[in-house]
């Protein structure tokens, strides 16, 4: 394994995109990075630009306004990338399924590697989701 591939596993960089979530999943993602769960000990870093990221965490059912932005952000993440759908909303669209402004779920728009379900999922589950995704694609 080359140094680049190895660092991808050792230290996956994460970009978090809210596509219309209720903020429940987002606070659990942040909680996963704060002292109690501390995903940073696994080398995870939350980055501010999709161009720096290896892992794209998507929350929310993808609203119509966010759809073009979501696709743009997805395209900006360099290959190889993994997409983790966090929350029931992102995984299946429920409970907003059938809403007039809802275009999702996420896998209708882009390929998803790992689904983390729960409304919202616990921070441990989110950490597990990231680890599984990284192992699956890069490991």
């Amino acid at each position: 394994m080359g140094i680049v591939a190895r660092s991808r596993v050792k230290s996956p960089w994460i970009f978090h995109l809210n596509t219309g979530s209720c903020a429940g999943c987002d606070i659990e993602i942040v909680a996963a990075l704060t002292p109690r769960y501390d995903a940073e000990r696994l080398g995870c870093v939350l980055v501010g630009s999709p161009r720096h990221a290896d892992v794209l965490l998507v929350t929310g059912p993808v609203t119509r306004q966010m759809l073009p932005r979501f696709i743009r952000v997805y395209e900006q993440v360099p290959e190889p990338k993994v997409v983790v759908a966090v929350g029931t909303c992102a995984s299946s669209g429920s409970p907003f399924l059938g809403g007039q402004m809802v275009e999702g779920p996420v896998d209708k728009i882009v390929p998803v590697d790992v689904y983390v379900v729960g409304c919202p999922p616990r921070p441990e589950a989110i950490v597990k989701g990231i680890v599984t995704a990284v192992k699956k694609r890069f490991g």
Partner: peptide, 25 residues
Amino acid sequence: GHVHRGIEGLAENRNLVQTLYLVER
């Protein structure tokens, strides 16, 4: 408007108890 999910509209197609769990979200 980026997070607009149409909750008020969705609520009109659900019953009162289902809406309770919808407004929570």
